[in-house]
């Protein structure tokens, strides 16, 4: 039985042969030529159909557009609020990290975190205001520090805020000690030093061999400030204008002029 005697069988065989050849060629060199030919041939038709499809798209009316605009504006407002909240949370997270570090290093102290809400422009970096007060357990003379070191003490306490006098103020008098030589002194400041962000260690023993680079910490003498709170590093050793006594210029660890958050020691948990 000759299969090719069936009607159309020869045409079918011929087309099959052509398609198998096209398959082999296409597999070998790709079908980009055929694609480009078909696209060129159908280009005018596709222009017509694309135009027809676009004309069939319903246009939005003015009220629909206004409604869509209002909805999008609402979404923008909501996203902006979320962004503000995100930044707040991010800042709070960083604050908590710093607080955690301070807490770890000062486990024996009761600490309260606070943010700077006001700085006295006239006094420069000598005073600033924190957002915690008596209701948070803040008392006058409570030490104020950051994760880098001591920045000052609470000089006034209101119900919801407190004023901090920094170690750059000439009214500050903190008993400090040189970690290397164990020389004690009084930390204070002057107008000139405060302008350059530095404090002064006075009342040094005349035989003291305090030197540049020495680390200064609180001594704990007097009972107001706990001992071993980092203060700063000696940047210079000088004599007064009459050459009568020696003093050390101390650069605080913390950049007090740019402090935005701080921690207040309100109590000592354990001795």
């Amino acid at each position: 039985m000759n299969v090719l005697r069936f009607k159309g069988a020869r045409m079918f065989a011929g087309i099959l042969f052509v398609l198998i050849g096209a398959w082999i060629i296409s597999a070998a060199v790709g079908s980009s030529f055929a694609t480009s030919v078909i696209n060129t041939v159908t280009y005018p038709i596709r222009q017509l159909t694309n135009g027809a499809a676009q004309s069939m798209q319903p246009e939005k009316s003015a009220p629909e557009l206004a409604q869509e605009n209002a909805l999008l504006q609402e979404q923008i407002n909501s996203l902006q609020e979320q962004l503000v909240n995100y930044y707040d949370i991010q800042k709070e997270n960083e604050q908590f990290k710093k607080y955690y570090n301070i807490r770890s290093e000062n486990a024996e102290y009761q600490l309260i975190t606070a943010s700077v809400i006001a700085k006295d422009e006239l006094s420069g970096s000598k005073m600033f205001t924190l957002n915690k007060g008596i209701t948070s357990g803040i008392k006058v003379n409570n030490p104020v520090l950051t994760e880098k070191g001591l920045v000052g003490w609470v000089s006034e306490a209101d119900i919801t805020s407190c004023t901090v006098t920094t170690i750059l103020s000439e009214t500050t008098t903190i008993s400090v000690i040189n970690k290397r030589t164990s020389d004690t002194g009084i930390l204070t400041s002057s107008d000139k030093c405060a302008q350059s962000g530095q404090a002064v260690m006075t009342m040094l023993n005349e035989n003291s061999d305090i030197a540049k680079g020495d680390i200064i910490v609180t001594s704990g003498i007097g009972g107001v400030f706990p001992a071993n709170l980092r203060v700063g590093v000696v940047s210079d050793v000088k004599f007064d204008e009459f050459d009568t006594y020696k003093y050390a210029v101390v650069t605080p660890y913390e950049d007090i002029a740019n402090t935005n958050e701080a921690v207040i020691i309100t109590d000592i948990i354990s001795q």
Partner: peptide, 18 residues
Amino acid sequence: SGVLSEITLGSVIGPYAI
């Protein structure tokens, strides 16, 4: 028709047309 469909798919020309 088969070749045109294969061009749409971007596949090799032949099998679907067959």
